[in-house]
Nucleic acid binder design. Structure first.
Lengths: 328, 328
DNA sequence: CTGAAAGCGCTTACAG
DNA sequence: CTGAAAGCGCTTACAG
C-alpha cells in the first residue's frame, strides 16, 4: 500500500511555477509576489498539500522537536509540567517527543533515539542522567536542560525552584509557631530536590537549636502513608510533619486521619509543589507553591537563546508558601 | 554555530567502504559480511555516529512516530494511559509525538503538524475530532485510533471499555443491594464514555422499575464536589451515588464527608476507571477497573496491522468491578 | 520576484 | 557481499 504524499513538485506543476517558488510560499519571510502566492496556495489547497517537516529538517538542521524525558509519571506535579511544556513549546513552534523512562536512569538507548530524530534539546524532569550521557550529548551539541533538578557534577542547564530557600522559609514558619517536635519525610534521597529541601529545613532549625527527625520516604504516597502509620503505632506523634512533596504530605495526612489525629491541632502538615489535589477541600494542604509557569518559561528561554550551547545556566526561582487548613 | 553531524559518508571513509555499506550495517536484515560489519561499527563508534532518522524516514516513508493527542491532562487516568502508550510503543520501536490540546476540539493546526511530521497514526484519547479532520486524515492515509471513546459518525478505529456493559453490571450490583434512591453524576455530556455509562446504568434500573436521578457534571472533581454539596444542602441524601469516573466519585465523596454523611452506611459511592488514588486508604473507592493495559495493547495491534487503513475496527473490552470500602 | 541546480543524509534496486 | 547511482522532498545560494 503506497502512501500518496503530495509533494511541492505537484503543486508547482498545477500552479505553473517552479518548485522553488512553492517552497518559498511555505517559508515565512521568503519573497514571493502576492499574485503567485495566491496561485500556489490555491493549488496547494486543492491538492491537500502540506510541507514535509522531515525533508525540511534534513536540510535546515532545525527539526523543531524537543525531547522530553520523564520518570515519575505517578506524581501529578509532573503531569501539570508536561501539559505546560506541551502548550508553551507549541506556541513557539516546537513539538514534544515524549519518553517515559521506566528505569531509574535514562538509558543510552533512549538518548540515541532522541539523537536520531535530531531533537534540538532534551528536557529531563525527574529522571537521572549519567555524566557519560551528558558528555555524549555535548559532543553532539544537543543542549540538555534539567527541570526541577540540579546536579553540580553534570555540566548542563538547570531550572528549578530554590529548594533550600523555600525549605528555610518553611522552617522559619514552623519555628515561629514554636513547634519543637518536628518530622521531615524525605523523597527519594538521590534527588537534589529532596536533599535541598531537607538541607534548608534542618539547617535553619538546627541554627535555632531545634532538632528535626528524618523519615526516609521515596516520593510516593504509599510509602509515606506506611511510614507515618508505623510512626504513630510506635507511639510518636509530632507537632508538625513536613513532606518533601505534596503526595508525601498527603500520604502522611491520610495515615494521621486513619489514627484519628486532629489536623492541624495535634499535628500540622506541610507539603511542597501545590499539585491540584492539594487544594481539594478534603485535603486543603498547606504547601509551597512552585512557580511552575515561570520555570517552564525559563526552560524555553534557554532553548530559544542562541548561546545555549556555549554556557550552562543554572536558574533558581522562588515560589511562595500557601496557608490552607493543615497548618494553624 | 554549525552543528557537526556525523554522516554515513564519513564513517564510510574511515572504514574504507562505500556509504551504501555503512547504511546496510545499520539496516536490520541487510546482508553484510561479518568482517566489514565489524570494521564499520568500529569506525561508527569512533566517530560517534548514529543514523539520521529524518533522512531515513524521508526515503522509507516510515517515521516510527505516532501522534498522541490528549485533552484532559487533569484526569490521572490519562496519565497512566500516557505512560503505558509511551512504554509499549517504544517496545515496538515507535515514538510518541505528544500534543496536549487545550481546546475542546482538536484544531486543524494541530493535525497539520502531525501530518508534516509524517506520523504513522494518530491516537486521540479524550479530545474531540471533527468529521472534517477525520476525512482529511483519511485522504492522507493516516489511521486514526480513538482511545476510550467512540463515535459512530466518525469512521475511525476505536478501542474502549464496553461502558454500557460495565454500567449495567454496576446497576445490577446496585439493584441487588436493594437501593431505591440512586444518583448518577455524569461526565461531560458530549463524551461517549459518559453517555454510555449513563445509558447502561439507567436503562438497566428502569427495566427493574427503579428510577435514577441525574446530576450533570463535567468529569472534574470540583464540579462534582459542588454538585453533591448543593444536593445535600437541598435536603437530598441518596442511598448510592455512581460517578461517571473516579474523580467525579471522589469529589462527591469529599462533599459527603464534609457533611458528615457516613460512607457507605448512609450513602454508598461507586466510581469508574480505578485510578491509583482510588486505592488510597483515605478513599478506598469501589469502582470499575478499566482494562487499560489490554486497551493500549489493542491500539498498538491496530497500529501494527497491515490492513489498518482499509477497515475500521471497533473494539470494546470488559474490565471488572472492584469492591473496596465505599460500598457495602 | 523567480527558476535551475546543488545538496541534506539516507535507502534501495541494479550490476557485478 | 559490495559499490555507483538515483531519488526521497525539501531549502537556499546563485543568476537573471
Amino acid at each position: 500500500m503506497v502512501k500518496k504524499v503530495v509533494s511541492a513538485m505537484q503543486v508547482a506543476k498545477l500552479a505553473n511555477v517552479s518548485q522553488s517558488t512553492v517552497s518559498r510560499v511555505f517559508t515565512p519571510g521568503a519573497s514571493v509576489s502576492e499574485k503567485t502566492r495566491k496561485k500556489v496556495l490555491e493549488a496547494a489547497e486543492k491538492l491537500n498539500y502540506y510541507p514535509n517537516a522531515l525533508a525540511r529538517g534534513l536540510i535546515t538542521k532545525k527539526t523543531n522537536i524537543v525531547g522530553l524525558a520523564m520518570k515519575d509519571i505517578q506524581n501529578p506535579f509532573y503531569h501539570e509540567v508536561l501539559g505546560l511544556f506541551s502548550k508553551k513549546l507549541r506556541e513557539k513552534g516546537y513539538f514534544v517527543l515524549f519518553v517515559y523512562t521506566e528505569n531509574e536512569e535514562i538509558q543510552q538507548d533512549e538518548i540515541n533515539h532522541f539523537l536520531e530524530y535530531n531533537v534540538e534539546a532534551i528536557i529531563v524532569t525527574d529522571a537521572l542522567l549519567s555524566s557519560n550521557l551528558v558528555e555524549q550529548l555535548r559532543k553532539n551539541d544537543i543542549p540538555v536542560i534539567l527541570f526541577n533538578r540540579y546536579e553540580k557534577s553534570l555540566q548542563c542547564n538547570s531550572v528549578s525552584s530554590d529548594n533550600v530557600y523555600a525549605a528555610r522559609k518553611i522552617a522559619d514558619y514552623v519555628y515561629q509557631k514554636g513547634y519543637k517536635d518536628i518530622f521531615f519525610i524525605t523523597g527519594k534521597t538521590n534527588t537534589s530536590t529532596s536533599r535541598d529541601r531537607q538541607k534548608g529545613f534542618t539547617e535553619f532549625l538546627k541554627g535555632k537549636g531545634v532538632n528535626v527527625t528524618i523519615l526516609e520516604g521515596d516520593y510516593t504516597y504509599e510509602k509515606s502513608f506506611c511510614l507515618t502509620k508505623q510512626m504513630l503505632e510506635d507511639g510518636y506523634k509530632p507537632e508538625v510533619i513536613f513532606g518533601a512533596n505534596d503526595i508525601t504530605a498527603l500520604g502522611a495526612m491520610d495515615a494521621l486521619k486513619e489514627k484519628n489525629v486532629r489536623i492541624p491541632e495535634e499535628t500540622a502538615i506541610i507539603g511542597f509543589d501545590d499539585i491540584r489535589m492539594s487544594s481539594w477541600p478534603n485535603y486543603a494542604l498547606s504547601t509551597w507553591v512552585q512557580p511552575v509557569e515561570e520555570m517552564v518559561d525559563e526552560v524555553i528561554n534557554i532553548l530559544l537563546s542562541s548561546d545555549k550551547r556555549e554556557k550552562q545556566r543554572t536558574i533558581k526561582l522562588k515560589g511562595h508558601f500557601i496557608h490552607r487548613k493543615t497548618t494553624i
